[in-house]
Amino acid sequence: MITQVQVKGLMFDPYNNAYIVILRDDEQSEMLPIWVGKSEASSISLALENVAPPRPMTHDFMKSYLDAFDAKVISVVITDLNENTYFAKIHLTYVDSEYTVDARPSDAIALALRSHAPIFASESVIRKQSSEELDQWLENLKPEDFGKLDS
């Protein structure tokens, strides 16, 4: 089972000088935080605000690459959470075939926003990280907890 989620915003994580992408399901009942680096956050932020940067960013380049051959991003899915690292898959159609490509959630989200493709999260990922746990978790966060989160 997968649930569609929307990108609700970006938060700054001062402990690790990183950013958190907040994903929420349509009923607003579940929240999924995903840690991303600064350049990934800025790329997601530009797409969210619909701002065209003076020069194309890496994810604009990625989209141009796919557009050049009329390959389409159908959807992206946050598929797994393992030791605080999230994994994602990008679903594409090209000519008459479908393809699934492994990606970091940050790349998948940045590309989905530019392609107007829906973002989904698997139930297992959401179950592992329910919003109640998140609040508690954010409160108790220590800087060393961020060490291996680089989404």
Partner: peptide, 19 residues
């Protein structure tokens, strides 16, 4: 890297689609 970085992803698109 443990997971594909952005340009690894572009390369991976190429490998999947034959570009």
């Amino acid at each position: 890297t443990p997971r594909p970085m952005s340009h690894d992803l572009v390369k991976s698109f190429g490998e999947h689609l034959g570009i």
